[in-house]
């Protein structure tokens, strides 16, 4: 069935419409879905145990046994990349979700209350924004200590979410400010609804578009930040598989002899972030009427 033959049926399916309007974004989405599947079914897909040392095959080059080769401990790199997708996606989604939601709510509240509350929140936002992200992350990790829940480093999630909060807050606030001017908000206030009710029921849904755009964009940022932190040794800890970590430590030592050790994990990071950026970009173009053609 060709869409051009039956133009009347084009509109109802938003996914098809998105693919048609944003082929690049759709390509990004496909990559994300593939990675997501790999992450969920890692136990089934991955050929080896990601943490098991095998001294018999240390630093093996890519071959039929190990498609992406092995690292200094003989651990299969493909396996670690597949499990690494799980680490990257969970931490990326969780921290982006926490950061954007907290920041978004703060932004809406700030716009709704205005005045002193707005001023105070914006000052706090400025303060947190002026912090180098690495410092924030480091201290949060140190203060929260080790709190792995269901195998997820919550401290790391918070460390990455906190720098996102002020950034999301700013964007959502400016979107919410225009909603604030709408007559129905005044009507709701006159109707005696509580502030919480108005914020959650009337203002928040109207800033959903920027929120979704931010959410996808910051998943990409969060994955990148997790990789950087893990690279510096502040993030995920050995022997857990994580892409940034695979570029640190021993890899830094061996990458001249065993370039596959850095090649594939780096590609994995880039591809994931690339896909999210592509998708996020297209989503923005698609959702933001200003850019609609």
């Amino acid at each position: 069935m060709s869409a051009t033959a039956l133009p009347a049926f084009r509109a109802p399916n938003p996914i098809l419409a998105f693919i048609r309007a944003q082929p690049l974004g759709a390509a990004g989405l496909v990559v994300i879905l593939v990675m997501g599947t790999a992450a969920v079914f890692a136990e089934v897909i991955a050929p080896f145990n990601p943490e098991a040392i095998d001294f018999m095959s240390m630093l093996a080059a890519p071959s039929a046994d190990h498609f992406f080769g092995t690292d200094a401990f003989g651990r299969d790199i493909l396996t670690r990349i597949i499990y690494g997708a799980r680490t990257a996606l969970t931490i990326g989604f969780l921290s982006s979700f926490i950061g954007c939601t907290a920041g978004g709510l703060l932004g809406v509240a700030s716009a709704y209350f205005g005045g002193r509350a707005d001023l105070l929140i914006m000052r706090l936002v400025d303060i947190v924004l002026s912090f180098p992200i690495i410092v924030l992350a480091l201290v949060v990790v140190a203060v929260l200590g080790k709190t792995a829940v269901l195998g997820i480093d919550l401290n790391l999630v918070f460390a990455i979410a906190i720098p996102i909060i002020p950034r999301a807050c700013r964007v959502v606030r400016s979107a919410a400010l225009s909603v604030r001017q709408m007559p129905y908000i005044d009507a709701a206030r006159a109707g005696g609804y509580s502030s919480t009710h108005i914020i959650l029921r009337h203002m928040a849904p109207n800033v959903l578009a920027p929120y979704l755009i931010l959410l996808t964009a910051y998943v990409a940022q969060a994955i990148l930040l997790e990789a950087s932190l893990s690279f510096l040794g502040l993030g995920v800890q050995e022997p857990k598989p994580a892409w940034g970590l695979m570029l640190a430590g021993d890899s830094a030592n061996f990458y001249q002899e065993a370039p596959w050790m850095i090649l594939f994990p780096g590609l994995a990071i880039s591809l994931a972030v690339f896909a999210f950026n592509l998708f996020g970009d297209s989503l923005r173009d698609w959702l933001d009427p200003k850019f609609r053609t």
Partner: peptide, 30 residues
């Protein structure tokens, strides 16, 4: 610690303990 070869030793010990059914969570600090 977050330095070599201490991390290498940590990875080794964790793998060895895994083989007798003991789970060690690695905590690398500054």
């Amino acid at each position: 610690r977050n330095h070599q070869p201490y991390v290498t030793a940590g990875i080794f010990v964790i793998d060895q303990l895994r083989q007798i059914g003991v789970r060690a969570e690695h905590q690398q600090v500054e």
